[in-house]
């Protein structure tokens, strides 16, 4: 039932993208997101699209798998598109009652939908090709300088990796409890909103109880293995940059420069 959530799920495959240092992927994703929200004009749009297609193709993750993540944000996308459609001032195309659709509105709505789609596709490449552990490892190392000014980077990274680790477990648990209650005749689908919210109680109470139980167990297990925070901890697989990582950095920077150049000089229409 809930097994089909893809957003933030690792897809094992043997590709260059999978092998990249997680810091490169984090940096690349950040640059990609910035580029998404500052590109203007057909040339820049083409550059972004080409870059996205190239990365998807190299990652060897089936495209179908990525599109599944889009379904989750469909409603958000529709709302954003609707707001853009009706709220943008400009040259009126159609108007009825208090609503009017402007030419600029149509353009903005389409652009926003494209941007959100690209955003999800792009970021899901990162999560599909990087295990949560690699991701937090990369984040921890990249943010390490911040620990000099008193930010507990290790603790934050540890919390993140635990949280990420527990998502699939809790999903599975939800699925199990849901089925157990359905076996006792519970109905999670029909009825009005109030009834639906009420029908969630038999699901949420056991879920919270089990989450607390798991947290207790985990804390105990960590303590039993002498976990005492980040100080002096070494890694079995420390992160080191290799040739392909440097090449990837170069490509990301070139890509960003291309988008900015297109924005500055080729910004028609």
């Amino acid at each position: 039932m809930l097994r089909d959530i893809t957003l933030g799920q690792y897809y094992p495959a043997d590709s260059v993208i999978h092998k990249l240092d997680p810091r490169v992927k984090l940096f690349g994703t950040l640059i990609y997101i910035i580029s998404l929200f500052c590109f203007r004009g057909a040339a820049a749009f083409a550059t972004v699209t080409l870059f996205l297609i190239a990365v998807i193709w190299t990652s060897k993750v089936p495209f179908k798998f990525m599109v599944k993540g889009l379904k989750a944000i469909m409603i958000l996308m529709l709302i954003t598109a609707a707001f853009n459609l009706f709220m943008t001032p400009g040259e009126t195309l159609v108007s009825f009652w208090i609503f009017k659709i402007t030419k600029e509105g149509v353009v903005n709505a389409a652009l926003m939908a494209v941007r959100l789609t690209y955003l999800i596709l792009g970021t899901s490449i990162m999560t599909l090709t990087t295990t949560p552990n690699q991701l937090t490892d990369g984040l921890e190392k990249a943010l390490m300088p911040l620990s000099k000014i008193g930010i507990p980077v290790h603790a934050i990274a540890m919390m993140m990796s635990i949280a990420l680790r527990f998502i699939p477990i809790l999903i599975e648990e939800t699925d199990k409890i849901m089925k157990a209650q359905m076996a006792r005749g519970a109905d999670f689908e029909s009825g009005n909103l109030l009834k639906k919210v009420k029908s969630m109680i038999p699901l949420l109470v056991p879920l919270f109880v089990s989450a607390f139980r798991r947290a207790d167990d985990l804390a105990m297990a960590m303590e039993a293995r002498c976990y005492h925070g980040g100080g002096g901890r070494t890694k079995m697989k420390p992160l080191r940059y290799e040739g392909r990582d440097r090449a990837a950095y170069l490509m990301i920077i070139l890509y960003f420069a291309a988008v900015l150049l297109c924005r500055a000089y080729l910004n028609w229409p």
Binding site: I177, A180, Q181
Partner: peptide
């Protein structure tokens, strides 16, 4: 199917985790 579920009772593994 809901009727079927009341005629075929299923007790899951660790059923005590479903108490609420």
């Amino acid at each position: 199917l809901r009727k079927l579920r009341s005629r075929v009772g299923l007790v899951f593994q660790y059923p005590e985790h479903q108490l609420f």
